[in-house]
Nucleic acid binder design. Structure first.
Length: 357
DNA sequence: GATCCGTGGGG
DNA sequence: TCCCCAAGGAT
């Protein structure tokens, strides 16, 4: 059974930029980028990353803002922040040499059991099992698991451990992930091409399109947000850097906040700007409305041009604030929903600028 | 153990 | 348009 998978992998495995790579730094970066993120999305970010941070030492020396700028658009920004923190820890604790024991690797921020197994098997051919989304799906189908995978994690880890080819852990882990990504897909699995067809309980029972069982999901709540593009008399815009811990931590944004019951967007924006920045603004024309879905809620950004009236801007509910021109704004990492606001500002501003000469 | 944490693409 | 889900980890 292991042999049939490895033979399939030898002929049908994907050719990916990090395959055959022996530098643990490069393996590590690929594993972090691939968390909850498809290969196609990762590849351009992966290439760009090493132009900016060719070595682990250069990553450790970088400023967090540079790291987040390269990560901009990839999402789950704690991954980028943790990559940076872990690089500094590796330089400090291990002399810049990526650690090679499971215990040490698991202590690095952003690395859990699956990522640790992925790194140790891919970089050092160590027999450490993994349980990513692909493996969960493959094993759930293989065994015809009758509960959602996340309700049977200890069982799935046992199966992953038992199946792992201890003679070829590097290729085996890559192979089972490729199987899940290319044949044993979430919808319409290509069972006729599968090397494990004869071993697959779901296929034998005709259940491959019913399994794995779905996880329980609750409907996403929706929030309406008032957002301010605050202009001063020099034609600069006020942006703020979000607090470290939570959603989009460390990224820049246009200030604003949640609309309260019975409140107009004008009132909301004046209130939020006073609370967060301690300044007064006049709310003007609506610039754009942006709908965006995060992983656990949806928002509508109602964006208004505002005029700065007075008060000294203070970083009350953020890390930092800055007045910037539209030309400078590209230097700062912004979340995706905000990039639509920037695009709208450009569209609107260029004709204005040309009219003014 | 349940929640939080982004974004893009497919059906 | 809407829902699903993708190389998960931290709290």
């Amino acid at each position: 059974m292991r042999r049939s998978l490895l033979t399939w992998y030898q002929h049908q495995g994907r050719d990916l930029p990090w395959r055959g790579e022996s530098d643990p730094y490069k393996i590590w970066v690929s594993e972090i980028m691939l968390q909850q993120t498809q290969v196609k999305t990762v590849i351009p970010y992966y290439q760009r990353w090493f132009k900016k941070f060719p070595t682990l030492e250069e990553l450790a020396r970088a400023d967090q803002q540079e790291v987040l700028k390269v990560w901009e658009g990839l999402g789950y920004y704690a991954r980028g922040r943790n990559l940076h923190k872990a690089a500094q820890k590796i330089v400090k604790d291990y002399g810049g040499i990526f650690p090679q024991t499971l215990e040490q690797v698991l202590k690095l921020p952003g690395i859990g059991r699956t990522t640790a197994g992925g790194i140790l098997s891919a970089a050092f051919n160590q027999p450490v099992s993994i349980l990513d989304g692909n493996v969960k799906r493959v094993l759930a189908r293989l065994t015809a698991l009758l509960v959602p995978p996340n309700q049977a994690l200890s069982q799935l880890w046992q199966w992953s451990d038992q199946l792992l080819d201890s003679e070829h852990p590097q290729d085996f882990n890559q192979a089972i992930m490729d199987l899940g990504a290319t044949l044993c897909t979430p919808k319409n699995p290509a069972c006729l091409l599968c090397p494990w067809q004869k071993h697959c309980q779901s296929y034998l029972e005709g259940l491959q399109n019913q399994l794995p069982m779905r996880e329980m999901t609750s409907p996403l709540p929706h929030k309406n947000i008032g957002v301010a593009v605050i202009w001063n008399e020099q034609g600069r815009i006020l942006i703020d850097r979000r607090l470290e811990g939570g959603l989009l931590g460390g990224l820049w944004e246009f200030p604003g906040g949640k609309l309260e019951a019975g409140e107009s967007y004008e009132d909301c924006i004046r209130r939020e700007i006073q609370e967060e920045l301690g300044i007064e603004v006049e709310v003007g024309d609506r610039l754009i409305t942006v709908n965006h879905a995060y992983s656990h809620f949806r928002i509508t950004l109602n964006v208004y041009h505002c005029r700065y009236l007075g008060g000294e801007p203070q970083a009350i509910e953020c890390q930092e604030i800055r007045w910037v021109t539209l030309d400078e704004i590209d230097q700062f990492p912004f979340p995706k929903a905000n990039s639509q606001i920037i695009a709208a500002l450009r569209d609107q501003n260029y004709p204005r600028a040309s009219n003014q000469g």
